[in-house]
Write a protein that binds this DNA or RNA. Sequence first.
DNA 1: TACCGTGCGTCCAGAATCCGAACTCACCCC
DNA 2: GGGGTGAGTTCGGATTCTGGACGCACGGTA
Lengths: 147, 147
Amino acid sequence: MTAPAEPRICSIARTLEVVGEKWALLAVREVFLGNRRFDEMVRRTGAPRDTLTARLRTLVDAGILQRQRYSDRPQRFEYHLTAAGRDLYPVILTLLRWGDEHLAGPEGPPLVLEHACGHRLLAEVTCQACGEVVDPAETTRRSPTSS
Amino acid sequence: MTAPAEPRICSIARTLEVVGEKWALLAVREVFLGNRRFDEMVRRTGAPRDTLTARLRTLVDAGILQRQRYSDRPQRFEYHLTAAGRDLYPVILTLLRWGDEHLAGPEGPPLVLEHACGHRLLAEVTCQACGEVVDPAETTRRSPTSS
DNA sequence: TACCGTGCGTCCAGAATCCGAACTCACCCC
DNA sequence: GGGGTGAGTTCGGATTCTGGACGCACGGTA
């Protein structure tokens, strides 16, 4: 008999369900960069208009973006980040950082972020409790209160 | 005349090209959790065997995983993280954290990580230069040395 | 009034992917 | 020989993605 499938119940999986479709995070990136209108997003992400329409809908439904009317006639909408959407910033940042480190061409990373401190933004994940940089080797998992 | 498409050259986009396909990050998650064999991954991710085969190949080609033989006859392989793969830990962590915060049911987050410091791991992105927690409102972008 | 441009989509048909179930192949153990 | 396991491959059908063309409501301008 073959072992039964036991897909993990997992926040990573759940998050990817919402945000893991192609173009979804690029749409969010554009909003972070201040491009809130449909055509601009199409232009700067390269996504097919159709697909972007679908993605934006998913993101709005998931409570990551908010559709705001900025013109009545004709009806025109902008996409704004909700609080949940803003919380995706660390995800975007860590993706950016990984790409900068592992996929940058010889001309260096294409999009450079500056932190308010004046330096180039170098993002790292730290443990909120002790403040130390997180090393996978130093984490263990615990079963949740298995109710 | 319609404005020309100008997809951003962007590390986020590049990273997603490699790691943004469905199941890719879940496969990486499994390796982080210590499940290095094909059948285990199929079981715990829920991905179709077919798709997982393709994903693993992509990840190996991208230098994120490494295929190591652990038995000669029959030939059997395990997937291990490379240095680049280990660098994906922050991405996984921030996804996990977002899901914990925004998609957890009433029974709390399903998979709890503990940091070596003894506390529940609470990952946050900080600026490496000044040590402060990164707030999107406090970052600006600079064009790279436009060579 | 007629025409042009723009913003924001929708429609369509074909291509690419994904899916689950069944199959293969090479072993090992009894 | 019979059963079990690990690691895929094969298959046809279901979804999803894609790009290009089209629709519609305007606003400007002539």
